[in-house]
Nucleic acid binder design. Structure first.
Length: 836
RNA sequence: GGACCCGUGGUGGAAUGGUUAACACGUCUGCCUUACACGCAGAAGACUGAGCGUUCGAUUCGCUCCGGGUCCACCA
C-alpha cells in the first residue's frame, strides 16, 4: 500500500502530467488498425497568449470525451492546433514594433505568435488536457498555408471561388480598406431631408404638366406622381439606382409604375421590398451605391447596377463633368450642376441649395443616427467597391443544411443557428482580406489579357508578391494578388488538416470525417458553417459525425467577462488556488450545454471538498483492504447490505453510461458524487467498520470481513474509474492503491459498464430500511444533543409489519452503526425510534 | 427589429404529466464519533417569473405577456 497524502495536494498534478507525457499515455496509435478510431476536430484557439475560462470549459468538455473514449477501447485521435493569423495579432505587433515592411512584419507576427502558443500550451498541459502534441498544427505554418492554398486552388478549379467587385468598408481619410472590427459606432446629429421624386405611371391614363396633379389630359406624356424620398445623404443622388417601398404599403402597392424619376432626372426601377419600413418618411426609399450596408443588400437582391459615387479619397466621381456628359439614364441633368471632385460635404450643400431653388427640397429635420467611424481616426467610413475573392455559399445553402442535418447536434436546437444563417445569408462569402499576417491567396493577374493565373500546386506554399511571373499567353509581367485569406478560410479546413487530406490517403480514410466537432455555439454561423461547406466541396463528404456545443462562461455576477468591468477570472489564478481537477469538475458541473453560465466559486470549492473526501475515504478503504485480494468466492458471503451497495453502484454505473452518450457531464459527476459521498461514505463506511475492525479469527467473522473488503474494493475502485476522465489526476493518484506500478495508468483500464451480477434487486428494501433506521437514530441523538457515538442501552423500534420482515438481515448494522445494545421491535403505523 | 436559449428556496443549479420539488454553497443548532472539522448529524428556507389554455391533475405541454442572455441586423 502506497501511503496517501494526509491532505489533498494538487501539486501532485504536475507529477502525473509529466508521467503521462513520458509514457505517451495518450498517444494515438497509428499502427493499431484493429481498434476503432475516434477522432476529435478540436477548435484551434486564437493565439492570444492566454486561455480564458471559455476555453477552459470547452476544452475540458472534449478532454472528458477523449479520456472516456480511450477507456472504452477507442483509438483516440486528438490533435490540437492554433489559429494564428488575424487582425488582433497585427494590432499588437504593430503597437509593439511600429509599422514595418510586410516581410519583416510577418516575421515579427510569427515570433510573437510562437511565444503566445508556448504560454497557452503550458496552460493546457497544467489543466491535464490530453491531446497528442505530435500532431500539433499552426495555421501560420508553411505546411498549413500549402494546404489552404491547395484547397483554394481546387475550389477555384471547380468554380466555387471567384473574383468580383464588392463593397468593403473604406476609410477615405486613411485611404484603406477596413474590417468590421476596425470600425466603431458613433451617434451623431444629422439632417434628414425629404426630396421630391416622381413616379412615372403606366395606368393608361395620361398625365398633364408632370407636376403630379391627376386627371389632366394634355398631350401624350405619361402621368407623373410626386413622392417624397427621405435621405440623409443627398450627395449620393447621382448613384441612385432604384426606389423601393414596402410590398404592403397601400400608397404604392396598387400603382402601376413604369419607373421612378430621381431629383436629378434619372429613371430608375420602383420595386417592392419587405425590408423597407413603411412608417419611415414617405415609405419610399432611394437605393444608392452605397449609402450604407442596407444598400448593398438591396443591390444584390434586386440585381441593381453599380455606380461608384465616391473615389478613394471620398470625392464625388461619376457625376457628369460637363452638361453633355449627363448619365444616359438621366433624361435631364440639371444644367450647370457640376459635382465631380467635390467633397461629400460640399456636394451635399451644393445639391441641397439646388433642390431648394427648384422646389424639390420639401423639408429638412434633425435626426440622431448611428454612423460607423474608423476606430483610429474617428472619421466616418464609406462603403467602397473593390475587387475581392468570394466563395459561393449562397447557391450551396441547401446542400450545407442537408449535410448539417446528417450530423448529430448536441444539443439539438443548436442546428437552428446554422439553418437560420443559411436562410438569411444575402451574399457570397468574401474570403479575401487586405491584411499582412494571413495566408496569401495564390493568384496573379494579367492586366493585358485580363486573366487570372492561379499558382501551380508544385509551387505551394506561395506568396505571390514574392514570386515574379509572366503571363502564359502574352509574356507580360503578372500582377500578384496581395490580399490574404479571411481567417475562417484557414480554420474551415481543420478536419482536412488533421486527417492529412491529400497527403496520406490511408490516414485520411481512418480519421475523416472527424467523429466529434466540439465548438462554441456563437461560431456555428462561421466555423461550423464554413467548415461544412468547404469540406463538402473538397471531399464530397460531410466533415464530422457529431457536434458538441458549449456556451459561454459569464463572470460570477452573471455578466460577460470583460476588462472594462474588471470581472475576469484568470485560469492561472484558479489553477494555483484549486488545481486542475477542481476546475475540471467545475467544468463538468457547468455542463448545461450550449448555455451560458456564470462562473461559480461554490462549484470549485465543492469540487475541492469532494476530492478531499475521496482522498480520506481512500485512506480508510486502503487501510481496510490492505493485503486483500479480490476473490469471487467472497460473493457467497455478502451480507444483504453489501449487496444493496453493489446494486446501487451498478445503478450509478448504468446512469453514467447513459449520460456519457449524451455528453451530460454534470449528470455523471453528480451521480458519482452523491452516491459516493452521501451513500457510500455517510452510511456504508459506518456500517462496515465493526466488520473491518473485528479481531475474531473464527471463520464467520473472517468471511464477513472479506465480504466487506470485497464490497469496499469494488465500490472504491469503480468510483475512481468512473471519475477518471473528469478528475484524472486525483483518480490516478488514488489508483496507486490498486495498481501494479507507476506505468499502470488508470486510463489504461476499461471504463466500468453495468454488470448483471451486481443487480441485487431484492436487497433494496433492507438497504433502504437500514438507512431510515440509522437516520432516525441520528435524528433522535441530535435532538437530545447527544454525540453520535453515545451508546443506547435499549432501542425501541416501532415500524410497520412489512418492514419488520427485513429487520433481521440488518440488525447487526443497526447495533454497530447506532451503538445500540438491544433492540425491541414494536408494530406501528410508521417508523419511529425511542431510546429506552 | 429577427432567430434562438433561459427565468425553480438568499445564491448556483437538478428533476418529473400525479403523494411532503434533488444537490451544493450560505444560514441556524448540536457533535473534535480511532478516514476526513475542506468533516459528521440535524434544522429552517420555494405558492417552480405573470396570466390564460389543454388535462381528472402541470413546475413539467401550448399560447400571450414580463424579465434576462446570446447571435445576427440596424435603418434610409
Amino acid at each position: 500500500m502506497i501511503p496517501l497524502a494526509d491532505r489533498l495536494d494538487f501539486t501532485n498534478e504536475q507529477k502525473w502530467q509529466a508521467r503521462w507525457e513520458a509514457a505517451h499515455a495518450h498517444d494515438f496509435d497509428e499502427a493499431d488498425t484493429a481498434k476503432p478510431v475516434y477522432s476529435i476536430d478540436t477548435p484551434p484557439p486564437f493565439t492570444s497568449g492566454d486561455l480564458h475560462m471559455g476555453h477552459v470549459l470547452s476544452y475540458s468538455y472534449f478532454d472528458f470525451v477523449a479520456r472516456y473514449k480511450r477507456m472504452r477501447g477507442f483509438n483516440v485521435y486528438y490533435p490540437q492546433g492554433w489559429d494564428c493569423q488575424g487582425f488582433p495579432t497585427e494590432t499588437k505587433v504593430e503597437a509593439k514594433y511600429g509599422r514595418k515592411p510586410p516581410e519583416e512584419f510577418r516575421k515579427l507576427c510569427i515570433e510573437w505568435t510562437h511565444a503566445c502558443i508556448g504560454r497557452m500550451r503550458a496552460q493546457m498541459n497544467s489543466l491535464g488536457f490530453s491531446p497528442d502534441w505530435r500532431y500539433e498544427y499552426r495555421t501560420m505554418d508553411p505546411s498549413y498555408h500549402k494546404l489552404v492554398q491547395k484547397s483554394i486552388l481546387q475550389m477555384y478549379e471547380s468554380r466555387q471561388i471567384y473574383r468580383g467587385e464588392h463593397p468593403v468598408f473604406w476609410c477615405p481619410s486613411c485611404q484603406s480598406a477596413l474590417a468590421k472590427t476596425d470600425t466603431e459606432d458613433v451617434e451623431r446629429q444629422t439632417q434628414l431631408h425629404d426630396i421630391k421624386f416622381q413616379l412615372e405611371l403606366d395606368d393608361g391614363k395620361e398625365g398633364g404638366n408632370g407636376k403630379g396633379n391627376e386627371g389632366g389630359a394634355e398631350g401624350g406624356k405619361p402621368r407623373l406622381l410626386d413622392i417624397a424620398i427621405a435621405t440623409t445623404r443627398p450627395e449620393l443622388m447621382h448613384a441612385c439606382v432604384a426606389v423601393l417601398f414596402h410590398p404592403e404599403d397601400a400608397r404604392y402597392k396598387d400603382l402601376k409604375v413604369k419607373s421612378a424619376i430621381s431629383a436629378l432626372g434619372a429613371k430608375v426601377p420602383f420595386k417592392p421590398d419587405a425590408d423597407v419600413d413603411p412608417l419611415f418618411g414617405s415609405g419610399a426609399v432611394m437605393v444608392c451605391t452605397f449609402g450604407d450596408k442596407q444598400d448593398v443588400v438591396w443591390m444584390y437582391r434586386h440585381k441593381l447596377p453599380i455606380i461608384r459615387a465616391l473615389d478613394e479619397r471620398g470625392k464625388i466621381i461619376n457625376a457628369p463633368a460637363k452638361e453633355s456628359e449627363a448619365s444616359p439614364s438621366a433624361s435631364s441633368w440639371p444644367p450647370g450642376l457640376l459635382l465631380n471632385g467635390l467633397s461629400i460635404f460640399d456636394a451635399r450643400s451644393k445639391l441641397l441649395e439646388r433642390f431648394k431653388s427648384e422646389g424639390k427640397l420639401l423639408s429638412s429635420k434633425p435626426l440622431t443616427q448611428v454612423v460607423k467611424v474608423h476606430d483610429r481616426c474617428k472619421k466616418p467610413i464609406e462603403l467602397s467597391l473593390s475587387w475581392q475573392w468570394f466563395a459561393k455559399i449562397t447557391e450551396n445553402r441547401e446542400k450545407i443544411v442537408a449535410a448539417a442535418r446528417q450530423m448529430r447536434w448536441a444539443p439539438e436546437f443548436a442546428i437552428s443557428y446554422l439553418e437560420d444563417w443559411a436562410n438569411f445569408v444575402e451574399w457570397d462569402w468574401v474570403i479575401s482580406r487586405q491584411r499582412i499576417f494571413g495566408t496569401p491567396l495564390p493568384f496573379w493577374y494579367c492586366v493585358k489579357c485580363d486573366q487570372t493565373v492561379p499558382a501551380q500546386e508544385s509551387e505551394l506554399p506561395v506568396n505571390p508578391p514574392a514570386l515574379e511571373k509572366k503571363c502564359p499567353a502574352c509574356q507580360s509581367s503578372l500582377v500578384p494578388e496581395s490580399s490574404t485569406c479571411d481567417c475562417w478560410v484557414d480554420s474551415s479546413i481543420t478536419p482536412l488538416a488533421i486527417s492529412k487530406w491529400g497527403e496520406d490517403s490511408k490516414f485520411f480514410k481512418r480519421t475523416y470525417p472527424a467523429s466529434l466537432r466540439p465548438q462554441g455555439v456563437e461560431i456555428v454561423r462561421t466555423w461550423a458553417f464554413y467548415t461544412i461547406y468547404r469540406c463538402l466541396e473538397l471531399t464530397g463528404k460531410p466533415p464530422f459525425g457529431e457536434l458538441l456545443l458549449n456556451g459561454n462562461v459569464l463572470a460570477p455576477d452573471g455578466k460577460k467577462m470583460s476588462k472594462s468591468l474588471g470581472n475576469i477570472i484568470a485560469p492561472d489564478k484558479l489553477l494555483a488556488d484549486y488545481g486542475a481537477d477542481c476546475i475540471r469538475i467545475w467544468a463538468a458541473l457547468s455542463g448545461a450545454m450550449a448555455r451560458d453560465r456564470p462562473f461559480s466559486y461554490q462549484d470549485v470549492q465543492y469540487a475541492k471538498s469532494f476530492l478531499n473526501k475521496l482522498l480520506n475515504a481512500g485512506k480508510l478503504v486502503g487501510k481496510s483492504i490492505e493485503g486483500y485480494k479480490p476473490d469471487d468466492a467472497d460473493e457467497k458471503h455478502l451480507r444483504p447490505i453489501d449487496k444493496y451497495f453493489l446494486h446501487r453502484l451498478n445503478e450509478v454505473v448504468h446512469e453514467c453510461a447513459v449520460a456519457w452518450g449524451d455528453f451530460e457531464f454534470h449528470r455523471i459527476t453528480k451521480a458519482v458524487q452523491e452516491f459516493f459521498w452521501h451513500e457510500f461514505c455517510d452510511y456504508y463506511l459506518e456500517y462496515v467498520k465493526y466488520r473491518i475492525y473485528a479481531e475474531g479469527t473464527d471463520k464467520e467473522t473472517q468471511q464477513s470481513k472479506r465480504a466487506a473488503q470485497y464490497t469496499l474494493h469494488a465500490v472504491y475502485k469503480t468510483t475512481l474509474l468512473l471519475l477518471a476522465p473528469i478528475a484524472p489526476h486525483s483518480s490516478e493518484e488514488l489508483w496507486q492503491m490498486f495498481s501494479a506500478g507507476e506505468s499502470d495508468f488508470i486510463s489504461k483500464h476499461a471504463y466500468p459498464t453495468p454488470d448483471q451480477k451486481f443487480a441485487h434487486e431484492k436487497s433494496v428494501p433492507a438497504g433502504q430500511l437500514l438507512a431510515q433506521v440509522i437516520s432516525a437514530i441520528r435524528q433522535e441523538k441530535a435532538s437530545r444533543k447527544l454525540s453520535l457515538n453515545s451508546p443506547i442501552a435499549k432501542l425501541e423500534l416501532v415500524l410497520p409489519e412489512e418492514q419488520a420482515a427485513h429487520l433481521k438481515s440488518i440488525e447487526d448494522e443497526i447495533k454497530a452503526a447506532g451503538r445500540v445494545e438491544k433492540i425491541e421491535v414494536k408494530e406501528g403505523e410508521e417508523l419511529k425510534v425511542v431510546f429506552a
